[in-house]
């Protein structure tokens, strides 16, 4: 009898142990699965959850990175321990054309179908602080724009009126997600003490439209014409001979009308004599 009791006790103890260990491990893994915003994955990395599940933490990609920017995460670094990451501010991806880190991966956690480095999406640059960005202040720094490997595609300079001086142009660095590889060169090169432009993991940086959203102008272009009742010219209630130009100076004379076509005569005395209410008649 005591043997059976011992056996049951042992079994229960072991099962409890397994449950406990599993629970603790699971918690740690869940807790640790969140990628801190400064950590970027190597090119070709799968979605974060898939990546940490498929990565064997061997460091082969780290060894094959010719610029030694990749690092395996230590316990307190943030990313799952042993997984590779890089930090844009201290060392961005140099965008090797042969992408040596990807074929080094034995498991495919770095997707081998990535053969064109321009298709990599390691993160997304965001001009996160427009209060300190020199270009946003109206100066011509342009460094992030100049160092961008996809200059004029991933980062463009968008011109706008400088409200402060009233006579200059603001050259606003603007990131376009369809070309930004997230290499981190812009953040690395930002001349400020703390970068105003930062490369963030895509899931953090990118918004997403509701699946049912349609952009009218895109749909219109695709269909070759308005899909709803055609746009109607707006009717303004204006004096005769006057028009309104939305995009230009506002109130304009209709072509062919005479400029003196007002309720008031050319001679002010006549108006005075007539009286405001026209009671002179």
């Amino acid at each position: 009898m005591s043997n059976r009791r011992q056996f049951i006790q042992q079994l229960a103890g072991s099962a409890l142990g397994v449950g406990l260990v599993g629970g603790v491990l699971g918690l740690i893994a869940r807790q640790g699965a969140a990628l801190p915003p400064h950590a970027l994955r190597p090119p070709g990395a799968l979605d974060e959850a898939q990546f940490t599940a498929a990565c064997v933490r061997c460091g082969l990609c780290v060894r094959d990175c010719p610029y030694a920017i990749l690092k395996l995460a230590d316990w307190l670094d943030g990313p799952a321990p042993g997984t590779p990451f890089f930090t844009a501010r201290s060392g961005p991806c140099e965008m090797c054309e042969d992408i040596p880190c990807v074929p080094a991966c034995p498991t495919g956690a770095l997707d081998p179908s990535l053969t064109e480095i321009d298709n990599a999406r390691m993160g997304l640059a965001v001009l996160i602080d427009q209060e300190t960005c020199l270009n946003a202040l109206g100066l011509r720094c342009d460094v992030c724009y100049r160092v961008c490997p996809a200059i004029d595609q991933a980062i463009t300079l968008e011109l706008s009126h400088n409200q402060r001086t009233g006579r200059h142009t603001v050259f606003m660095p603007t990131v376009h997600s369809d070309h930004c590889t997230g290499c981190g060169k812009c953040e690395h090169a930002c001349v400020l003490d703390t970068a105003a432009i930062k490369v963030l993991p895509i899931q953090l940086a990118k918004g997403e439209l509701g699946a049912h959203y349609r952009l009218g102008w895109e749909e219109k272009e695709r269909a070759g014409g308005a899909l709803v009742a055609p746009d109607r010219e707006h009717q303004f209630n204006l004096p005769e001979g006057k028009g309104y130009d939305y995009y230009g100076p506002g109130l304009v004379d209709e072509p062919g009308s005479t400029t003196d076509d007002t309720p008031f005569g050319a001679n002010p005395l006549e108006t005075l004599r007539r009286g405001i209410g026209g009671g002179g008649e």
């Binding site: 072991s14 599993g22 699971g26 740690i28 893994a29 599940a53 933490r57 042993g82």
Partner: peptide
């Protein structure tokens, strides 16, 4: 039992959770 726990956790969490603690991997790194 621990081996079983390690594999079951991987199954349920979808992550090689043991690698957060595995002393062999940690020592190797």
């Amino acid at each position: 039992w621990l081996l079983g726990a390690v594999l079951l956790t991987a199954l349920f969490v979808g992550q090689p959770a043991w690698e957060w603690l595995n002393p062999v991997s940690l020592a190797s790194r």
